[in-house]
Write a protein that binds this DNA or RNA. Structure first.
Lengths: 330, 330
DNA sequence: GCACACTGGGAAACCGTTTTCCGGGAGGTC
DNA sequence: GACCTCCCGGAAAACGGTTTCCCAGTGTGC
């Protein structure tokens, strides 16, 4: 393994000079020496040891992103947005996937802390468990105490800079739009009650429906994924319109109805949430609430890096997008 | 920032002892001292500095994965498989996305080399450009010379351990299946000619069709993504069966036909390649060639880590999956 | 009772950089 | 010509750990 010392020796200069030439320094180096060093580095195939640099500089050029599941397009989009932003800043990205295990999330923060990453992005729903949240927050405090920066996409529960999608308001707006089309009997494929994202969307929807004076929707809990939507779709009773708290679940529901010969939107209308790009060619096209996921990821990174004294919480509105999966009953 | 020295001081022991207690060592430490050290570490919120450890140990516990685009489910699945395997080995993962820029890929390898990551996984199609390939290979050689391990998912062109999907053979098998259903006039949505994955699949398909004595398919080049499939689908002439070289393109083609009132599979049949999980609820269900993407990612990691003297190339077969998007003309 | 492993603790070298500090020489000013 | 700046090169001290020695103390075997 070729070190800076090898390069310096071959070029006949000191370590200091070699370092100044090869890794950006404020100090100038004479052009003759500079050329010698560059030549030597090239000949030897020198590659600076980032671990040593991180140690010496006291700061790394790596950030960490923690998501639930990369194969879920929601998180992939968030991560992609953040990664593009990071790459614009010349930062490398360490990605951790927790597969929805909160313990893993805490462990990852600890590990990223050990790595002295410059910032940590937590993307993914909080769970409604105060002890878990407290432990995660504690871990984050330790990390921040040692100079780390943190941002979160999701619920504002951790006391850090947060990009907070308007889950409640978005679902409520969707509810009003659907009611405006003449629907009166609703059901909600609600996902797991302890997942805050799922719970907020469900609550926003149900509350809005009740405020409109319509009958309270039937709420069906279940997993937050495609199969969860598929299974829950069988328990929607006589609802004319079904709201799945995310697009992936909605697609599962569509599949279930199709298999049972229930036509969408003629027999039942279906709406989702997120507006996942990969699903845009779904048939029928899915009514949903669009979130600018990539922007949110990028914004979270900016927040983390710029982080001032005060904690910033940025709310992101969702946009109701009506498509063919919902019937107009008027 | 609390260091090992702080812990040692607080516990009243030497640096050596503290190190031995907190970070796995072969040496034993008496239980009294051990307890004191652990207590001190806990009180102070000590977190070992991985950069320092990497430097001192000469080996990091990080691996690197380079993919084209995380929001493409193909790469997300590959990355996910590799990440699960990595997490099983207690390794952290740095992910880089190149967005199909070969220069970025080379730059990433250099960066990961600098990071002294334990292994690098290159996931994603090679391009048919010998100079690029040579430069990438050169970068890899440097990295390997300094002890790095490399594996690749895709074409076996880099002289490293490779998990090679049977693109050519899979497409050929698909061609024979489709011909077996009575189709005779084919078109191929071929993607970009310089992308080896696209080119191999196209060649396998076309060759198989010719070998069956059927008319040579019309080949339409274009981008490798959904919009590429959408655009190319308009130029398929009188073909009764269209093969898109990946599922995402096939979905684009389905969308194009739908918009133009062309029924699938009654008017035209469509097949893809990859069997992307997120698209399984597409209507009509997509005929495709299934690749075990997660397994392939995991296997690539294993290959990289286990890497012996000789270069291993593991071929992965694809399985033809006939679904409703293809009509049976018999 | 004595040589002898063996155990567990500490001092210090080392990993590969960055950066501070020091010094020598060139050039400018009066 | 003396003095003062710059400018640039090098020696050496960090950075935060790991690990190799070395050493004192404690059983053990005969």
């Amino acid at each position: 393994m070729v070190t800076l010392e090898d390069v310096a020796k071959q070029a006949g200069v000191s370590l200091a000079t070699a370092s100044r030439v090869l890794n950006g320094s404020t100090r100038q180096v004479g052009s003759a020496l500079r050329a010698r060093v560059e030549l030597a580095a090239d000949e030897l195939g020198y590659r600076a040891n980032s671990a040593a640099q991180t140690l010496a500089r006291g700061a790394s050029n790596v950030i960490g992103i923690v998501v639930h599941d990369l194969t879920d397009p929601y998180f992939a989009a968030l991560a992609d947005g953040a990664m593009r932003a990071a790459s614009g800043e010349g930062l490398l990205v360490m990605v951790g996937t927790t597969h929805r295990d909160p313990e893993q999330e805490i462990a990852y923060v600890a590990t990223l802390h050990a790595q002295r990453v410059r910032a940590v992005l937590l993307a993914g729903s909080r769970v409604a468990d105060e002890r878990i949240t407290a432990r995660l927050a504690g871990e984050l405090v330790k990390y921040q105490a040692s100079g780390g920066r943190v941002a979160c996409v999701g619920q504002d529960l951790l006391g850090v800079d947060t990009v907070a999608p308007a889950n409640y308001e978005g679902a409520a707006a969707l509810a009003r739009s659907l009611a405006g089309l003449g629907h009166t009997r609703f059901a909600v494929l609600a996902g797991p009650p302890h997942l805050m994202t799922a719970a907020d969307r469900c609550a926003g929807f149900v509350t809005a429906i009740k405020e409109l004076g319509l009958p309270e929707p039937r709420v069906v809990a279940g997993p937050f994924d495609r199969d969860g939507g598929y299974a829950a779709a069988r328990q929607t009773g006589d609802a004319t319109c079904v709201f799945a708290v995310n697009d992936v679940m909605a697609v599962g529901a569509l599949a279930a109805y199709r298999e049972h010969g229930i036509r969408v939107p003629q027999d039942v209308s279906v709406a989702g949430f997120d507006d996942i790009a990969t699903l845009r060619d779904q048939v029928p096209a899915l009514t949903t609430v669009r979130l600018p996921l990539k922007d949110m990821g990028a914004r979270a990174l900016e927040l983390a890096l710029s982080g001032g004294e005060s904690v910033v919480v940025e709310h992101v509105a969702g946009e109701v997008v009506l498509r063919e999966s919902v019937a107009d009953l008027r």
